[in-house]
Amino acid sequence: MQAFFQFTVEGLTIGGFYALVALGYTMVYGIIRLINFAHGDVFMVGAFIGWTVLVTLAGTHLPIVLALFVALATSLFFSGALGVVIDRVAYQPLLAAPRLSILITALGVSLALENGVLLIYGPGFLTYPHLLGTAGFTIGGVQISYAQTTMFVISLALMFALYLFVHRTFIGTAMRALAVDQDAARLMGIDVERIIQITFFVGSFLAAAAGMMEGLYYTQINFYMGFLLGLRAFTAAVLGGIGNIPGAMAGGLLIGLLESYGAGYISSRWTDVFVFLVLIGVLVVKPTGLFGERVVERM
């Protein structure tokens, strides 16, 4: 039983990362019905920008907390901007084209980001500064590190902030309206292209936050990290019902738990098989994901 709780703690920590990245997939899908294959790589780029700033600031005498803040702000802002640029260059011109051509440009962007980072930083692993340590506390034999707690709290806080943004602001309401009916949204005076850009910014912003946290948590990053994590985050988005924001949050945590239990009780070699089988099983029983999708099917 103790092992079970230990796996749960680990699962929730990584599940928080998955959820943050899954939100980007689900928001973009909800609005323009695109599976943004480059999204996992934005997560990776976020981690690399954060690393670069942290390593640069390591030479100065800036206090650690301040350095972290600067790195986080830089990474989140530039990754958000990257999301907007990707949308403008590779997606907007193709919104009216066949759906698969935009999927291919998404794959192209993904490859370009991975290989771009590979060219700049090389193929090896880079080490994040060890800022978090392994200190923690124990409840009933279950070890919980401060790092895990912090990560989980930050993830939840970001998700809550997003929830408020989407439900309490004009822009957020416009996003939800856009997902229902683009033409009707235009008739409200909503600049659809601009809202799409904001969506890309917010999604990429959250992904970069997850990227930096993953770097700080595992202390190792590499150009390929976005692919694996992106795959699981995408799975999480679908599991929760793609297009559904609370669904993506729940799906992310669920995939984190599944992965942790799978690795703990079965074998880490079979984790992905386990995760995918659960996903396919869920979709066969409930084709719109666990929480249904926010899509109005019109006749």
Partner: peptide, 15 residues
């Protein structure tokens, strides 16, 4: 073409 999954008030505000 009202926004079905949004509340009545949200629909009005979007107007």
């Amino acid at each position: 073409r009202i926004f079905g999954p949004l509340s009545v008030e949200e629909n009005l505000r979007l107007g």
